[in-house]
């Protein structure tokens, strides 16, 4: 398993993940670079491609954490919120982008663990048992975190809608 192979097979996954973890699309390529720079250093010790994606995701989490600590988080949130309230989501590319920005903003309101579980299961299609094993969680705990993440997101959506209505009205 070479870096090139891993990059080619998983760079799209990492690219999606870093954005879902709160890194703006304009900085996503840099974040992908940072993730694979870590991968390049440790790949030789990685004997199997099993669990590779969850390992990559964990590195992406670290990159995103570092980013959030050092970047203007409030600014990004404000931008995402403004985009969300200014547009009406239908089906065009721009509208999908706005929806993506909104979802990423909503994800940023979740706790780290709930967000990770939600991204891997709901957005990336991993199974709950896979996530449980990768992160050494009990299966009921994974389901619990997923359920809590959904509830948090629903509440966040309602808050955003109420805020948008106030701003419009």
């Amino acid at each position: 398993m070479t870096l090139e192979q891993v990059y080619q097979d998983h760079q799209a996954f990492v690219w999606r993940s870093v954005q879902r973890l709160g890194i703006p699309s304009a900085h996503a390529d840099d974040a992908v670079h940072d993730v694979f720079l870590v991968v390049a250093r440790r790949l030789a010790e990685f004997r199997s491609d099993s669990q590779l994606r969850t390992w990559l995701f964990a590195i992406a989490l670290r990159v995103a954490q570092r980013y959030r600590r050092t970047q203007a988080r409030q600014h990004r949130k404000a931008e995402a919120l403004r985009s969300a309230t200014e547009a009406r989501v239908e089906s065009s590319g721009e509208e999908r982008r706005v929806a993506a920005d909104l979802l990423h903003h909503l994800l940023s309101t979740l706790s780290e663990d709930r967000r990770a579980v939600f991204i891997l299961i709901e957005l990336e299609g991993l199974t709950a048992p896979e996530v449980a094993e990768a992160f050494r969680l009990k299966l009921p705990t994974v389901y619990s975190k997923l359920r809590a993440a959904r509830q948090d997101l629903e509440q966040a959506i309602r808050r955003e809608e109420a805020r948008a209505e106030r701003e419009v009205g």
Binding site: Q51, T54, A134
Partner: peptide
């Protein structure tokens, strides 16, 4: 960060 070895392939 999960361990780099083991379980099922996602």
């Amino acid at each position: 960060v999960p361990a780099p070895v083991s379980p099922p392939r996602p």
